[in-house]
Nucleic acid binder design. Structure first.
Length: 575
RNA sequence: GCCCUCGUAGCUCAGUUGGAUAGAGCGACCCCCUCCUAAGGGGUAGGCCACAGGUUCGACUCCUGUCGAGGGCACCA
C-alpha cells in the first residue's frame, strides 16, 4: 500500500499483468489486443484490486476463464507490494496487497498537507474555462448559481490535477437586449423626474432597474441625458446599466466565493473590428455564401419570411444547417460574435477550451464546434458541459421564475438565507446531467437533510477530539514514531482505504470533468469517519494505540479539508 | 418532424466509464449518550434498474425501438 502518490501501485500491477497477458497470447494466431484494467472491488473479501482479463482471454485461448487465470498467475512477475492473489468467481484475479503501509500513507498525507491528492501543474496544459456568463441585464438567479458553483469547482479540480486553468466570464454587453435594458432604465429615470410615461411589456420590470436609474441620476444630470439624441442616450445609459449590473453580478459571485481571471466583453469584439475581420477571413476562404434558410420545423414562427442571408457553411464541418452571420440589417449575429470570441481564445494560446452552458443552449454546441473546426481545425472545441435546469420549489410547490415578471429568486437572496457553504455543497451533490430540484425551505433547514452539515460535522468532530487531547496534555507524536499498524479495526481499515483512494478519485473526476464526484466522495469519507469514531475510542485508550488513532484522525481531517476546499466549502473547526 | 439530456427503493440521488450479493440520505419501524460534539452510530422493511428486443463469458451500464419527463430547432442572446 504505497500508492498514496496517485495510482502508482495500480499502474505497476497493470503492467505486470499486461506482460503476462502478452506472453500468453504470443502463440495465438488471431490474438486481439487485450488491455489490462484493474478495478477496486466493492467487497473487502475480493481484495485490494481485481482483474477481469481472464474472461475475454478465455475464448481466444479456448480455455475456461479460471484456467486462464491460473496460467496468468504462473506467468506473472508481481511487484513486491503484492501479498497474495486469488482466483474467484467466474475467473476474477483478486490481488491483496501487503498490509503495514498504513504509516506511510498517513505520514504522506500529513507531510503533503493541502497538496495531498494534487499533482504539480506548473508545466500543465493551459485550459480556458468559461462559465456563468450570465447576461448583464439583471441579477443572477439560482439557476446561474449552479453553473457558477460547478464551474468554479471544476477549475479548482483541474488546477489540482495538472492543468493551468484560466477562468473567464463572457459579458454579452451587445445586442438588442442591452437596448431593452437601456430603454427600461431611461423610462425609470423619467419616472423619477416626475415625467409620467407608460411602461411597456417589453421593458424589464424589476426593482433593480429603478435602483440603477437612481444611481445614474446621482452621477449625472438628468437634463444632459435629455439633451442627447436617442441613439447616443441609449448607448450611454446602456453602458452605465451594464456596468451597474456587472458590479452587482460580481458582488453576488463574490458572496459565493467565486472570482474570475478575466471578464471578456462582447462589445469590444465589435468595436475592435474582430467580428468583421472574422467574416472577411471566412469570406476569403470561401466558407460564406448567400442563400435562404428553410423555416424552422415544429416551432411556431409567426413572422417567418424567406430571405437571402450570408451563410456560414458549418454543415461542411458537422453542423445540421448553415448559420447566418449577419442579420437583415447587416449587423453581426450573436453567433458571429461568439465564434470571434472563441477564435480570440484560440489566438490567446488556448488550444483547449471548456464552456459551461445552461441546458437551454444545448442546440448551440454543434454550430460552435463546427465553426471552430473550420477556423482552427480543432476537433470538439470548445468542450461544452451542459448544466441542467434548476427547478425551484417552495415546500414542494413549483415556483416559476421569470425575469420578465420580476418573480425570480436571486442567487444572493438564497445565499443570504441558506449560507454559502450549503449552496455550494448542495449544487455539487448531483451530476450536472440531472435536473436539480431546489427547495427553498428545505435548503434553509440546518438538519440531516442538508448533507453539508454531515460532512462539516465530521471535520468539526475531529477538531474537537484534537482539542480535547491538547487539554489533557497529550502531545501528538511525530508520524514517523507512530505504529499505525495498530489500526486494525474494520472501521479504521475502511477509513484508511477511503483516504488512499482520494488521489485516484480526483484523477477520475478531473478526466471526466465531474467535480460532483468530490462531493460524493466526501460524504462517503465522512460516513467512514463517523462509523470509526463511534466504534473506536481515541482518547483514553492505551498510549500507542491512541497515537495511532490520533494520526488517523489528523490525516482524515486533512483530506476532508482538502476536498471541501476544492468545492469552495469551508471546514469549520467547531460547530 | 428532427436534435440534446434524463428515467434506479415511497421521495431525492449514487453506482469508479461492461464485472462478483445494485448502494446512501430522507420518510417508516426498532435499538444506542454515567463515554472524545446524538448535526452522530447500529439494525429491519422497502427493487422486474421505465418497457421490449439485441450485442457477449457477463448489461443498471453499450446498440435499436417504444413509452414518459425536461430542454432546443432562421433573422434573439
Amino acid at each position: 500500500m504505497v500508492d498514496y502518490d496517485g495510482g502508482f501501485v495500480k499502474q505497476a500491477l497493470e503492467m505486470a499483468l499486461q506482460c503476462a497477458v502478452e506472453t500468453l497470447l504470443q502463440d495465438v494466431p488471431d490474438a486481439k489486443q487485450v488491455s489490462v484494467k484493474l478495478s477496486r472491488p466493492k467487497i473487502k473479501e475480493h481484495g485490494d484490486y481485481a482483474a477481469n482479463v481472464a474472461m475475454p482471454l478465455a475464448a481466444m485461448l479456448k480455455k475456461s476463464p479460471r484456467q486462464v487465470a491460473e496460467l496468468l498467475l504462473q506467468t506473472v512477475q508481481w511487484p513486491e507490494q503484492v501479498e497474495k492473489t486469488d482466483i474467484a468467481g467466474p475467473g476474477f484475479i483478486n490481488i491483496i496487497l501487503k498490509v503495514g503501509g498504513e504509516t506511510d500513507i498517513l505520514k504522506a498525507i500529513l507531510s503533503q498537507g493541502v497538496a495531498y491528492g494534487c499533482v504539480d501543474n506548473s508545466q500543465g496544459a493551459p485550459v480556458n474555462l468559461e462559465f456563468v456568463s450570465a447576461n448583464p441585464t439583471g441579477p443572477m438567479h439560482v439557476g446561474h448559481g449552479r453553473g457558477a458553483v460547478v464551474g468554479d469547482a471544476l477549475a479548482n479540480l483541474l488546477n489540482a490535477r495538472g492543468y493551468q486553468v484560466h477562468k473567464e466570464y463572457y459579458i454579452n454587453d451587445a445586442g438588442t437586449q442591452i437596448g431593452v435594458l437601456a430603454n427600461s432604465v431611461w423610462l425609470r429615470m423619467q419616472e423619477l423626474q416626475g415625467i409620467a410615461s407608460s411602461f411597456p411589456d417589453s421593458a424589464y420590470p424589476g426593482d433593480y432597474i429603478i435602483e440603477i436609474a437612481k444611481e445614474i441620476l446621482t452621477g449625472k444630470d438628468f437634463d444632459s441625458f435629455k439633451a442627447m439624441d436617442e441613439a447616443s442616450r441609449i448607448n450611454e445609459i446602456g453602458a452605465l446599466a451594464v456596468a451597474a449590473n456587472m458590479a452587482m453580478i460580481r458582488s453576488d459571485l463574490n458572496d459565493v466565493g467565486i472570482t474570475f481571471d478575466q471578464y471578456f466583453s462582447e462589445k469590444t469584439l465589435h468595436e475592435s473590428g474582430k467580428v468583421e475581420q472574422l467574416i472577411e477571413t471566412l469570406e476569403n476562404d470561401g466558407l460564406i455564401y448567400t442563400g435562404t434558410l428553410p423555416p424552422p420545423k415544429g416551432k411556431e414562427v409567426s413572422d417567418y419570411k424567406p430571405m437571402q442571408q450570408r451563410l456560414f457553411r458549418t454543415t461542411d464541418f458537422g453542423d445540421d444547417v448553415d448559420r447566418p452571420l449577419q442579420k437583415q440589417d447587416g449587423t453581426a449575429t450573436y453567433f458571429a460574435a461568439d465564434i470571434a470570441y472563441h477564435d480570440d481564445k484560440y489566438h490567446r494560446g488556448f488550444k483547449h477550451m471548456i464552456d459551461i452552458w445552461g441546458a437551454d443552449h444545448g442546440g448551440y454546441i454543434k454550430r460552435v464546434q463546427s465553426a471552430m473546426k473550420a477556423l482552427t481545425g480543432l476537433e470538439k472545441q470548445p468542450e461544452v458541459l451542459l448544466v441542467q435546469m434548476v427547478n425551484l420549489t417552495r415546500d414542494g410547490v413549483p415556483f416559476k421564475m421569470s425575469k420578465r415578471a420580476g418573480t425570480f429568486v436571486t442567487l444572493s437572496e438564497v445565499v443570504e438565507e441558506v449560507g454559502k457553504d450549503a449552496v455550494r455543497f448542495n449544487f455539487m451533490t448531483r451530476r450536472i446531467e440531472s435536473q436539480f430540484d431546489f427547495d427553498l425551505e428545505a435548503a434553509k433547514q440546518k438538519d440531516a437533510e442538508n448533507p453539508v452539515y454531515y460532512v462539516q460535522y465530521a471535520h468539526a468532530r475531529i477538531c474537537a477530539v484534537l482539542r480535547k487531547a491538547e487539554e489533557e496534555g497529550i502531545s501528538l507524536q511525530d508520524a514517523e514514531a507512530v505504529n499505525a499498524s495498530l489500526l486494525s479495526s474494520d472501521e479504521a481499515q475502511k477509513l484508511i482505504k477511503m483516504l488512499l483512494s482520494y488521489p485516484e478519485m480526483l484523477d477520475t473526476a478531473a478526466q471526466r470533468r465531474e467535480p460532483y464526484r468530490i462531493a460524493t466522495y466526501i460524504m462517503q469519507l465522512a460516513a467512514a469517519f463517523h462509523s470509526f469514531y463511534h466504534h473506536n475510542r481515541v482518547i483514553g485508550v492505551e498510549e500507542e494505540l491512541m497515537q495511532a488513532r490520533l494520526l488517523l484522525l489528523r490525516a482524515t481531517a486533512q483530506v476532508i479539508k482538502n476536498a471541501l476546499g476544492l468545492l469552495g466549502v469551508s471546514a469549520p473547526k467547531a460547530m
